[in-house]
Every structure is written in C-alpha cells, then in structure tokens.
Design a protein around this nucleic acid. Structure first.
Length: 127
DNA sequence: TTTCTCACA
DNA sequence: TGTGAGGA
C-alpha cells in the first residue's frame, strides 16, 4: 500500500463531519454500518472515526440508493468488487513471482557460465 | 457539545 | 428512518 492510499485509509473524521460532507443524518450513517456497508474504526471513547475512503463509500451508497437500489443490491456490488480486488491482487503477486523467477534464472545462467569458464556471456558487461 | 446505545404513542 | 432518553 502506498503512502497516498494509507492516508485515505486513516480514520480521522467524526460522524458530525461525515454528516456535513454527505448531507446524511447520523441515524442513516450508523444504519449503513449496521448493514455492513461501511466499517468505521472506533476511538478510545467508542466514537466512530471515518476515513476518506469511508466517505467515498458512503457517497456511493447514497447514489445507489437514490438510483433505486436496496441495501442487499449494494452489498452484492461491494462483495463483487472485493472479489475482483482479490483476484487482481493474486494476479499481481503472481507476476511479481514470475519476475523474481526470471531474475533467479538469469542469475543461474551467469553462474553456469562462470563454472564452465565461459567468457562469452552477452550480459557480462551490462550487469 | 458531540456522540453513543436503546427503544418506540 | 425519525426521535427522545440517559449516559460518557
């Protein structure tokens, strides 16, 4: 996770700020949490603290609701998005592994050349 | 003052 | 989803 994403994930906004930013009532915001649509952190005093990502999430919920979707619909939308995120994350780590494998193979190639006393490694002067 | 949980003439 | 109680 990059620095920027980390900041967007920091839960620093109290519900009052979220109310102003989203134009929703505290009741509604808490209800969406009850339905598992948003998962704000809690501070020492049991107060809900929201991140910028939570704000985006809530605004998205608000839009979907105004478009006629119900809570269940929205839950499935987020569920599918999460599934996709996992798939892409898996693909990403696989590509990293492949890249790592390539480096190891190249390293082996260089070692083989050295063991055989081979002096015509084309990459010899570049690596 | 703000936010929390709980409950419903 | 609104609203009030009673507490932190």
């Amino acid at each position: 996770m990059g620095e920027k994403e980390l900041r967007r994930s920091l839960s620093v906004l109290p519900i009052g700020t979220v109310m102003k930013l989203t134009n929703l009532t505290a009741r509604q915001i808490r209800y969406y949490e009850e339905q598992g649509l948003v998962l704000p952190k809690r501070n020492e005093g049991n107060r809900r603290m929201y991140s910028l990502n939570d704000i985006d999430r809530i605004l998205e919920i608000k839009d979907y609701l105004s478009e006629g979707m119900n809570i269940a619909d929205i839950q499935s939308v987020f569920a599918k998005r999460e599934a996709k995120r996992k798939r892409e994350q898996a693909a990403l780590s696989k590509s990293i592994s492949d890249d790592e494998a390539r480096r190891l193979l190249h390293k082996e190639f260089l070692n083989l050349g050295g063991l055989a006393g081979n002096n015509n490694d084309p990459f010899n002067n570049r690596l």
